[in-house]
Write a protein that binds this DNA or RNA. Structure first.
Lengths: 304, 304
DNA sequence: CTCAATGATACAAAAAATATATCACGGATC
DNA sequence: GATCCGTGATATATTTTTTGTATCATTGAG
């Protein structure tokens, strides 16, 4: 029976009651509701019958609310507000204005366009929560497949990852990082081949395999195999070791935004020094689509 | 336009969507809703059209919710819950199960049935808030007229108060209060006329005029005019002064529940020693009606 | 290849909401 | 005190919405 009652009392009924309760005048209320007075009168009466409670006191010519009417006015307002939120909230989600984006990124991307893209996105989509996690390209692919990450920022090429989509986001190139007191560091122009006999500091191959290979290949093209004397996890660690003179390294040019008095950066003009940063994803939630869309500047994405 | 949309999305629609979202199966959902499948299908489609958001992913033979659908499921559930509360809450108010009762009472009523009545009422109507305020009969009448009090517990008769309704609640009688070391206090039987020459402690006439007059009249019938030597506000104060020997007094018998080693109570058998405690009220809110109804044991009251 | 399951479509019937016209009542006005 | 205006109630017709019945289209399993 309770279910039956709820079925009969509609949002429209509540809207009508609120209008009458606020105006305390059937004609004015009907006008506000863009309807005529008779159906309004009967609607209110049916409402009272349905819930079996007198809500409006019909004293001669003056209307008043019973205590129950006051209560229903309050509750009906809240119900209407909630109903409206149901719709606007849903539209927000659909439009990607609300939601959660779990964003992964490779460490080096923090020195490119990504931070600015994040800042701009947060301004335009304040209700989207962003969860950021640094991870290697391989780890991001795994997380996206596992559904624990929505979007990743990685360095292509990807291997065995035909199931994830890829969108170019930023480009960068490799450059040399030299200790400032190193002979080459004082020299104006340095060629990559000049490093053939120098000890290298590099990240382990497990951390960013594709990127690692690109460095090796680049050196190979310059005619040598880099002698890796020291490995370190993370670009910052690599650079710290370069700073104290443990060796030279090849890092993304955007890392030169990371300043250290003991390090000198030198460009590499060899072909193959360029690399890209791309978004990867599989099923884009609307909010994740908003992010990729906004950051990559492309127009539309099919959302899940 | 937003208003238009809200007008089209009804509670029924939400109920239908919730059923489909929970079952992920149109036929089962329709069965649960006691309707057939085709109109359910079209209702959901119309809902999606109305808010212009895809809520249900119709993958071949398997249904799934889009992120927006998840959101709408959550919000629709909340809306339905709120709508149901609007009705049940209103019914609670109408039935007097919820609300506020501002109850006034004369001090002496605290030693009669009132405390028990309050306790029992609170057990049966836990959602009704009770505001208690001690006040004289006259003050209660004024407060009820002013609309700042719902129900009063007073000692009739009332004067110039034809506009308030009166309901007998409890009865009591007057008794003598004597200092224990007073000669009369040691005597087994005491007649009221024995007090004719004793100094009296009484409350001022302003505080409980009708009650005061009853004492005077009672003494007059016993053949004397009480010599009031000391006035004190409140029964407790009166009794305290009796306890220290400042005089004798006549107080409600129920006050003998207030024990003091220095006071002896003696019954008054004279006609006219009885008095009543009554509820007074004007417009009973449902919760106030519940209270009066419950306390006085009567069945039904017309509620405002 | 057929069958069962499932959602979509078309059309008809039922129910509900709303509009129009009118009445009934009460207080204000002259 | 008769009349009129403002207000809510009633009766009935019309439109809109919702629901039901019958049927089809697609898909995956045996």
């Amino acid at each position: 029976m309770a279910i039956d009652v709820r079925a009969r009392v509609t949002l429209r009924t509540m809207e009508q009651f609120v209008a009458v309760a606020e105006e305390l005048h059937f004609h004015r209320a009907a006008e506000r509701l863009n309807m005529s007075q008779p159906p309004l009168t009967s609607a209110i009466r049916k409402l009272e019958e349905d819930i079996d409670v007198t809500l409006i006191e019909r004293g001669n010519r003056v209307l008043g609310l019973t205590p129950a009417g006051e209560k229903f006015l309050e509750e009906a307002r809240e119900t209407l507000r909630q109903a409206e939120q149901a719709i606007t909230g849903t539209k927000d989600v659909a439009a990607g204005r609300t939601g959660l984006v779990r964003l992964g990124y490779v460490g080096s991307s923090l020195y490119g366009r990504l931070p600015d893209a994040i800042r701009a996105f947060r301004l335009q989509y304040p209700k989207v929560r962003l969860e950021l996690r640094e991870a290697t390209t391989a780890a991001q692919i795994a997380a996206i497949r596992a559904g624990t990450m929505d979007v990743g920022v990685v360095i292509p090429p990807l291997h065995h990852a035909e199931d994830v989509e890829l969108d170019r986001f930023d480009s960068d190139r490799l450059c040399m990082a030299l200790p400032k007191d190193h002979p080459l560091g004082k020299q104006g122009r340095v060629k990559l081949s000049d490093l053939s006999d120098e000890p290298f500091v590099l990240w382990p191959m497990l951390e960013g395999r594709g990127f690692h290979l690109q460095v090796i290949r680049l050196c190979a093209n310059a005619g040598f195999v880099p002698r890796v004397e020291q490995e370190a996890y993370g670009m910052h660690a690599v650079l710290s070791l370069v700073a104290v003179g443990l060796g030279v390294s090849v890092v993304p040019e955007s890392m030169s935004g990371f300043r250290d008095d003991r390090i000198t950066y030198r460009p590499i003009n060899d072909a193959g020094s360029e690399f890209e940063l791309s978004f990867i994803y599989r099923d884009l939630s609307p909010s994740a689509a908003s992010f990729v869309c906004h950051a990559s500047g492309k127009e539309k994405y099919k959302v899940l």
